[in-house]
């Protein structure tokens, strides 16, 4: 692997790991789904760098596209589709659900 690939890998790794932490810590559920798809996108790029174009293509189509779509649709059906997460009281890893009574 060349020098530039190493730097790209480092950048992708930092992005993916921080996005993965963000998935668990961010208040807003839509932002969490977006962060999960960032992880998938970085993974697809890493697969492409690892000479696995088939897997990269699958991950790009399934992980970035379809999976985020399913999760976003589920958010609407779960009643968690809210653009501002400010009303939700959250501390570390404690995601309280608002309007529990439906």
């Amino acid at each position: 692997m060349s020098e530039i690939e190493l730097w790209i890998l480092l950048l992708l790794a930092v992005t993916m790991l921080s996005a993965a932490v963000m998935v668990l810590l961010v208040k807003n559920h839509i932002a969490a789904v977006a962060a999960a798809s960032v992880v998938s996108l970085g993974l697809a790029l890493i697969f492409a760098l690892l000479r696995a174009p088939d897997v990269a293509m699958t991950e790009a189509a399934v992980g970035v596209g379809l999976s985020s779509l399913i999760l976003a649709l589920a958010l609407r059906r779960l009643g968690l589709w809210r653009l501002d997460g400010s009303k939700t009281k959250t501390n570390l890893l404690e995601h309280h659900v608002e309007n529990r009574d439906g």
């Binding site: 088939d54 293509m57 699958t58 189509a61 399934v62 596209g65 379809l66």
Partner: peptide
């Protein structure tokens, strides 16, 4: 590519 990607 192939069936899985195209199917999606």
């Amino acid at each position: 590519g192939g069936g899985f990607q195209g199917g999606v």
